[in-house]
Amino acid sequence: MNVAVFLISLGATCRITRFITKDTLAAGFRVWTADRFGDDSRAAYLVSCGWCASIWVAAAVTPTAFMAGDTLAFKIGATALTLSYITGLASSHVD
């Protein structure tokens, strides 16, 4: 894995983790998880904790990056997720 693929994989991991744990669009998934497994369950905690969810997201992104990191499809998708994450960070600090 080269440095560029590593960096866009990092950004993709950050964005996917943020989507799962914080974004309004995934709130229904977090509520469903809490309803299904209980508010105090490990599953409910997993989908609301960035540190916890990121290890599982990284576990999916890493082998994908190793196997497909040089493909155009991976580069476009991971770059879009990375740019989304960076833009979100910038807008929350600039606005």
Rank of each mutant, 00 (worst) to 15 (best):
A4K: 15
A4N: 12
V5M: 05
V5L: 03
F6E: 14
F6Q: 13
F6G: 07
L7Y: 05
I8M: 14
S9D: 07
S9T: 00
L10R: 07
G11W: 02
G11D: 07
A12W: 02
T13V: 00
R15E: 08
I16V: 13
I16L: 03
F19Y: 13
F19P: 01
I20G: 00
T24V: 05
T24L: 14
L25Y: 09
L25N: 11
A26W: 02
A26Q: 04
F29Y: 07
R30E: 06
V31E: 15
V31W: 15
V31C: 13
T33S: 13
T33W: 12
D35T: 07
D35H: 13
F37H: 05
D40K: 10
S41L: 00
S41Y: 04
R42D: 15
A43G: 12
A44H: 08
Y45H: 14
L46C: 07
V47L: 08
G50I: 00
W51R: 06
C52N: 10
C52L: 06
S54D: 11
W56R: 04
A58R: 00
A58Y: 04
A58K: 02
A58Q: 05
A59F: 06
A59Y: 03
V61F: 03
T62F: 13
T62M: 15
T62S: 11
T64A: 14
T64W: 04
F66I: 14
F66C: 11
M67Y: 11
A73Y: 13
K75I: 04
K75F: 09
K75G: 12
G77W: 12
A80W: 01
A80G: 05
A80L: 09
L81V: 02
L81Y: 02
T82L: 12
T82M: 07
S84G: 12
S84M: 07
Y85K: 05
Y85C: 10
T87S: 12
T87E: 10
L89F: 08
L89I: 06
L89S: 07
S91W: 06
S92D: 07
S92V: 05
S92R: 11
H93E: 02
H93N: 08
H93I: 08
H93L: 09
V94K: 08
V94L: 14
D95C: 08
D95N: 11
D95I: 09
